[in-house]
């Protein structure tokens, strides 16, 4: 589903991703953990080319991401992304937020999209908020709208970029529950998070990143209970 080959990414003089390679299979749930500044969010943003890379190759669903515009937009339509700060469109109602891209990007008929959007909103528990505006919702509700918005594009892959980090503690669960359900439904997911409980419960594979490199990866049990690398041990020691 995703193939990342030896990518390098620089922000000016800062070398943020150093020779990162990664394969993600269809239906796999990969959780990426690591200290802030380790490049995990950047890696995620490279996967739909919100950030360009300087060298290496990224393949998503058999299409190579390069500077060719149609390729990038084609891939982005297939890859859903959910952001830490929700990034809902504040001038549109919840339903319009969810419907916009399928209608104008996928060019699907509005009536059909509306049905699907309502179904997805019901699935994330927001059937009674369809006419509300983002500012009228709690953080947890906004983030569930953001997930619904991504899902309505019928993506083959979902990227989650620290999606619970901006939420009040009591709102984290409702978002994680939606993500767990998604994982059970077989969605391919790459999740950057600090929620270790979520990683343990859902992840097929946990990746630990530090200083722009993948330091260690394996099953949740392997990485959390039997970390091999010194840096992984130090990081887990700090947060667990």
């Amino acid at each position: 589903m995703v193939k990342v080959k030896n990518i390098h990414k620089h922000f000016g003089h800062l070398h943020v991703l150093k020779d990162v390679s990664l394969d993600v299979a269809r239906g796999e749930v990969v959780v990426i953990i690591g200290p802030s500044g380790s490049g995990k969010s950047t890696l995620l943003r490279c996967l739909n080319y919100l950030e360009p890379i300087q060298s290496g190759e990224i393949w998503v669903d058999g299409i190579r991401l390069d500077h060719h515009k149609t390729n990038i937009r084609q891939v982005r339509a297939e890859v859903g992304m959910v952001f830490q700060s929700f990034n809902l469109f504040p001038h549109l109602s919840v339903l319009r937020n969810v419907m916009l891209a399928p209608v104008i990007v996928r060019k699907r008929p509005e009536a059909e999209v509306r049905q699907e959007a309502l179904a997805i909103l019901a699935k994330v528990g927001l059937q009674d908020k369809t006419d509300a505006f983002p500012s009228q919702l709690s953080g947890g509700q906004q983030q569930r709208v953001a997930i619904a918005r991504a899902l309505c594009m019928q993506p083959k892959l979902m990227l989650f970029d620290e999606v619970t980090s901006a939420l009040d503690p009591e709102l984290v669960r409702e978002v994680l529950d939606v993500m767990k359900q998604l994982a059970r439904d077989g969605m391919t997911m790459i999740v950057v998070t600090h929620e270790m409980g979520f990683a343990r419960e859902v992840a097929d594979r946990v990746i630990f990143m530090d200083e722009g490199q993948i330091v260690e990866q394996g099953s949740a049990e392997d990485v959390f209970d039997r970390p091999q690398n010194q840096r992984t041990k130090e990081f887990l020691g700090k947060i667990l």
């Binding site: 739909n48 919100l50 515009k69 937009r73 084609q74 982005r76 339509a77 890859v79 859903g80 992304m81 952001f83 700060s85 990034n87 809902l88 469109f89 504040p90 001038h91 916009l100 891209a101 104008i104 990007v105 996928r106 918005r149 991504a150 594009m153």
Partner: peptide, 24 residues
């Protein structure tokens, strides 16, 4: 943020401008 969200959904420059940026 708004550009990121629009681009991540596959919108191009003109679509992002027309539906997301300009109305705001």
């Amino acid at each position: 943020d708004q550009w990121d969200a629009a681009r991540a959904l596959g919108m191009g420059y003109l679509q992002s401008m027309r539906y997301i940026v300009m109305p705001q």
